[in-house]
Design a protein around this nucleic acid. Structure first.
Length: 106
DNA sequence: AACATGACAAGTT
DNA sequence: AAACTTGCCATGT
């Protein structure tokens, strides 16, 4: 039984634990937060955070490694932040995603 | 209250 | 392999 508040909370917790230099996906976060099929809501939550800079929103990409949320940032802020952490981006996609991917664990 | 939309993902064609 | 379809569910109109 997961109510939306729990889900939201867990997402934030997981989000705050993404290591520098790694990325993770909406689906993985959703799964660890207890609602495997709610990956969409994860993105929605991030958008409501409005890039507080309190959470590393830029380290979340879709399962393809594509920077789907980049338009929520200033121009190419997202890409810049990731590159600054050593993540290579080509054509808005994370290069070698498998290596950079961080699997959330509680 | 009903309907459309979205920072996704998995399955089918 | 790429395009299309379906499931999902909180938010906004």
């Amino acid at each position: 039984m997961f109510d939306k508040k729990d889900f939201h909370e867990k997402v934030l917790i997981i989000l705050s634990r993404i290591p520098i230099g790694s990325v993770t996906t909406y689906g993985l976060i959703a799964e660890k937060a207890g609602a495997k099929s709610s990956s969409r809501q994860v993105g929605y939550i991030l958008s409501t955070l409005k890039n507080n800079n309190l959470y590393p929103c830029h380290r979340v990409v879709n399962r393809n490694g594509l920077l789907t949320g980049k338009f929520n940032f200033k121009e190419n802020e997202m890409e810049k932040l990731l590159k600054a952490e050593g993540i290579e981006i080509i054509e808005d996609k994370v290069v070698n995603l498998k290596e950079k991917l961080w699997i959330p664990n509680l």
